[in-house]
C-alpha cells in the first residue's frame, strides 16, 4: 500500500476550496450487543475541514467516531451495518475504502485514520519512543529519517520547543496539555489523512485547551479532523462543520455558523442554547 498524498504538504488554504467529501456515511446502524447506538445515520465529512460532533452523553457521537477507524473491533458485541466509506479523490490513487468490510486491512485503515483520545495516554516510554512508535511499526526508516520525522511531528504538534531538550526523558513527566499534544504528534507521525479526536480537551485545564484548539486550527490545513466535543464554545470556535446527534440519530448537520446561529431543528436549538445536555 504505497500512495502519494500530495495534499498533505500543500500549504494552500483549504477554506478557499469547495468542499470535497472524504468520509461518506450512509444509513449507518450500530449496536452494542442488543443496544442500538446509532440509527440510520447519513453524513458527509469534508476533506481538510474540522467537523465537530456535538450532542448529549450517550447520543452515539463517540460510537460513530470509533467506527471510522474501527476501534470498536475490540469491543465485544459491537457491530455495524450500512455504509461507511473513505472516498478517494482524483489526485490520490487510493481507491475507496469500505470501512465496514470485515476483510478490511484494519492496520492500513488506522494508519490513514489516526485517533486522539479524551485523556492524554502517552506510553510509559520516552518522548522520542512515543512518537517513533507508529513509524517503527509501519515504515522502514533509518535512524536519521526517524529523528527527522520525530522532530517534524513534534513541531507540527507545537510541542517541540518544550520537549526538545528532554526527548529521551519519560513522557509521563510532561504536563497534561503537553501530553495531549505529544499524543497528537504521535498520531501524525505515521502520516494519516484523518485525525479523529474524542473530546481531546475535556481532561485539560483552560490554557492547555486553548493551546490544543490553536493546534487543531493549524492542522486542518493538512488533515481532515473530526472532533467529538461536549464544549459548545469549542465546537463553534474551531470547527467548520457541526453535526448534532441525539439518541443515536443525526438531528442536524451543517456549517458551524449556521448550526449555532440558525439551527433548523428545535432540538438543536434547545441544545446549543443549553436547555438540556
Amino acid at each position: 500500500m504505497s500512495s502519494v498524498t500530495p495534499a498533505i504538504d500543500s500549504e494552500q488554504n483549504s477554506d478557499a476550496l469547495p468542499d470535497q467529501t472524504l468520509i461518506h456515511i450512509e444509513k449507518l446502524n450500530a449496536w452494542y450487543g442488543d443496544f442500538q447506538a446509532i440509527h440510520d445515520l447519513s453524513l458527509d465529512i469534508p476533506k481538510h475541514k474540522v467537523t465537530a460532533f456535538i450532542g448529549p452523553s450517550g447520543c452515539g457521537k463517540s460510537t460513530l467516531l470509533k467506527w471510522i477507524n474501527r476501534m470498536n473491533d475490540v469491543v465485544p458485541g459491537a457491530r455495524a451495518k450500512g455504509r461507511l466509506a473513505i472516498t478517494g479523490d482524483a489526485s490520490n490513487d487510493h481507491v475507496e475504502i469500505d470501512v465496514l468490510d470485515p476483510g478490511l486491512d484494519v492496520v492500513g485503515l488506522r494508519r490513514k485514520v489516526g485517533i486522539v483520545f479524551q485523556k492524554p495516554n502517552p506510553f510509559p516510554k520516552s518522548i522520542y519512543d512515543n512518537v517513533a512508535f507508529g513509524p517503527r511499526l509501519h515504515m522502514k526508516t533509518s535512524k536519521s529519517e526517524l529523528d527527522e520525522l520525530v522532530e517534524w511531528s513534534l513541531q507540527k504538534a507545537a510541542v517541540w520547543d518544550e520537549v526538545k531538550d528532554r526527548l529521551h526523558g519519560p513522557a509521563l513527566g510532561l504536563s497534561g496539555g503537553q501530553q495531549q499534544r505529544l499524543c497528537i504528534a504521535r498520531a501524525i507521525a505515521v502520516g494519516p489523512e484523518v485525525l479523529l479526536m474524542d473530546e481531546p480537551c475535556s481532561a485539560l485545564d483552560p490554557s492547555s485547551t486553548l493551546a490544543i484548539e490553536d493546534l487543531i486550527f493549524e492542522l486542518r490545513t493538512q488533515y481532515t479532523i473530526v472532533i467529538v466535543t461536549h464544549n459548545m464554545q469549542q465546537a463553534s470556535r474551531c470547527s467548520d462543520k457541526t453535526a448534532f446527534f441525539f439518541e443515536g440519530r443525526l438531528i442536524e448537520a451543517g456549517p458551524t455558523e449556521q448550526v449555532f446561529t440558525r439551527p433548523q431543528q428545535k432540538q438543536t436549538d434547545d441544545y446549543v442554547r443549553g436547555k438540556f445536555g
Binding site: 498533505i8 515504515m139 522502514k140
Partner: peptide
Amino acid sequence: MTLPKSLQNREFRSTRWGVL
C-alpha cells in the same frame, strides 16, 4: 518545515506478513 522524507516516500510495510 518540510515533510520528512519518510512521510514523502510513504513506503509502508506490507501488512500481509503481519497478518500471517
